[in-house]
Amino acid sequence: MTIKVQELVKEFRRPKRKSGRFTALRTLFSHEYASTRAVDGVDFSIEPGELIGYIGPNGAGKSTTIKMLTGILVPTSGTVEVAGVVPWRERERNARQIGVVFGQRTGLWWDLPLRDSLELVRPLYDLPRQRFLANLETFAGMLGLDQFMDVPVRQLSLGQRMRGDLAAAMLHEPQILYLDEPTVGLDIVAKRRIREFLSRLNRDAGTTVILTTHDLDDVEELCTRVILVDHGKVLYDGDVAELKRQHAPHHELIVHLAEPAFTADIPDVQRTRREDGFVTLTFDPARIAAADLISNVLAVHRVTDLSIVRPKLEDVVADIYAERSP
């Protein structure tokens, strides 16, 4: 179930707005167009069983890329293959091998109980009844659906509805799952449930997961690889830890001293802050291991507490985009 994307471009055209009298009519009948390039020469390949974070700011082209992968949109140029299928040419065949969840929209039937809504998924994929029931029982257990299975979808909380959407997307056992902002607006408990589900799905079933989100805690907890995009272009494609190492190599050791002064002089370590008995030491793990730094501190000082603060992916990505802003 390899996904291959090469030189992918998507442009949206709209009539140029005309000024003067009868503006709407002049615009409507205009033959001049303005183009916006939402995706601009994107290349990547995803192997079976990967769990990828596809991240970037609003307008970066994330959702547009997902819509081309699912066959909803046709690219302006470039190629996409999902397990050997060109999505927009063979939409039905592609639909049978993928699951899709858009966080802002539900695929469930609004006025039906969740159970009936999920039941209507079965004929869409010609699922044998026994296979459907077995899968429903599995996903209901994993996502905790039983307590609200007979509640109309319109009465479900956002977190409950999202869990129902995830079950609906996976009932036909697709090998690829696309998620577009699946945890937007959810509380911490609902987010944890969904993260646990995705991790287990990827680990136990080998499902390939492509996750677009603004919540980089999702990415940091679930993904080892990220594809970072901006203005339709790929800025980075690789390991999460390597991205942090490149852009935020320094960690902090925060030490709570049992004595008034900090006198230890440790090479490759900078003392950056001191307040209320706490001393912050900034270090590069590539130059000195955290364990060695702690040993050096404890050899000189009595310490009541210490902790290591590693750079968060959210801060790293924010800094990257800040550097690119005009």
Score class of each variant (00 low, 15 high):
residue 246 Q to D: 05
residue 156 L to M: 14
residue 24 A to E: 14
residue 292 D to M: 08
residue 315 D to P: 08
residue 148 F to M: 01
residue 187 D to N: 12
residue 65 T to M: 06
residue 2 T to W: 06
residue 194 I to C: 02
residue 95 A to C: 08
residue 73 L to T: 03
residue 263 T to S: 15
residue 314 E to I: 00
residue 44 F to S: 02
residue 235 L to G: 04
residue 131 R to H: 13
residue 260 P to W: 10
residue 307 S to A: 15
residue 206 G to Q: 12
residue 288 I to S: 10
residue 160 Q to H: 06
residue 234 V to M: 08
residue 68 M to D: 04
residue 11 E to D: 02
residue 229 V to W: 01
residue 141 G to S: 12
residue 69 L to F: 07
residue 302 R to L: 06
residue 254 I to D: 14
residue 238 G to D: 00
residue 13 R to W: 00
residue 17 R to Y: 01
residue 2 T to A: 13
residue 20 G to S: 09
residue 310 R to K: 09
residue 298 L to V: 01
residue 237 D to N: 10
residue 262 F to N: 02
residue 117 S to C: 14
residue 192 R to K: 12
residue 252 E to T: 06
residue 106 T to F: 05
residue 117 S to L: 15
residue 212 T to C: 12
residue 184 V to E: 09
residue 273 R to H: 14
residue 116 D to H: 11
residue 189 V to M: 13
residue 299 A to G: 15
residue 313 L to N: 04
residue 158 L to W: 05
residue 43 D to F: 05
residue 269 V to G: 11
residue 76 T to Y: 02
residue 250 H to N: 10
residue 148 F to K: 11
residue 18 K to N: 05
residue 77 S to Y: 02
residue 212 T to V: 02
residue 297 V to P: 03
residue 118 L to S: 13
residue 200 R to Y: 07
residue 126 D to C: 14
residue 273 R to N: 11
residue 280 T to D: 10
residue 222 L to H: 09
residue 82 V to P: 02
residue 173 E to D: 12
residue 221 E to Y: 09
residue 119 E to F: 13
residue 227 I to Y: 07
residue 71 G to D: 01
residue 272 T to M: 11
residue 226 V to P: 07
residue 253 L to A: 10
residue 222 L to G: 04
residue 63 S to Y: 00
residue 61 G to R: 07
residue 157 S to P: 11
residue 14 R to Y: 04
residue 322 A to G: 11
residue 197 F to S: 00
residue 29 F to K: 11
residue 191 K to I: 05
residue 260 P to G: 09
residue 294 I to E: 04
residue 228 L to V: 04
residue 169 A to C: 03
residue 207 T to A: 11
residue 292 D to Q: 14
residue 111 D to A: 13
residue 184 V to K: 13
residue 323 E to D: 15
residue 226 V to D: 06
residue 245 R to K: 06
residue 222 L to N: 11
residue 76 T to F: 01
residue 167 A to K: 10
residue 76 T to E: 03
residue 236 Y to G: 09
residue 321 Y to M: 03
residue 61 G to I: 00
residue 58 N to R: 08
residue 287 R to H: 12
residue 104 Q to M: 03
residue 276 D to S: 12
residue 108 L to W: 12
residue 116 D to S: 12
residue 278 F to H: 13
residue 137 E to K: 15
residue 16 K to V: 04
residue 132 F to V: 09
residue 287 R to I: 00
residue 65 T to A: 02
residue 259 E to M: 03
residue 279 V to P: 12
residue 244 K to D: 07
residue 130 Q to A: 07
residue 54 Y to R: 10
residue 166 L to D: 05
residue 190 A to M: 07
residue 165 D to R: 13
residue 163 R to M: 04
residue 297 V to H: 12
residue 25 L to N: 10
residue 137 E to C: 08
residue 196 E to Y: 08
residue 90 E to S: 14
residue 56 G to L: 06
residue 118 L to H: 07
residue 237 D to G: 00
residue 314 E to N: 11
residue 269 V to P: 10
residue 76 T to I: 00
residue 277 G to H: 05
residue 8 L to Y: 06
residue 62 K to I: 00
residue 134 A to E: 15
residue 12 F to G: 00
residue 113 P to Q: 04
residue 141 G to W: 08
residue 70 T to W: 04
residue 34 A to Q: 15
residue 225 R to N: 05
residue 27 T to G: 08
residue 260 P to V: 02
residue 184 V to S: 13
residue 210 I to F: 15
residue 317 V to E: 10
residue 68 M to T: 03
residue 167 A to P: 04
residue 288 I to F: 13
residue 227 I to G: 04
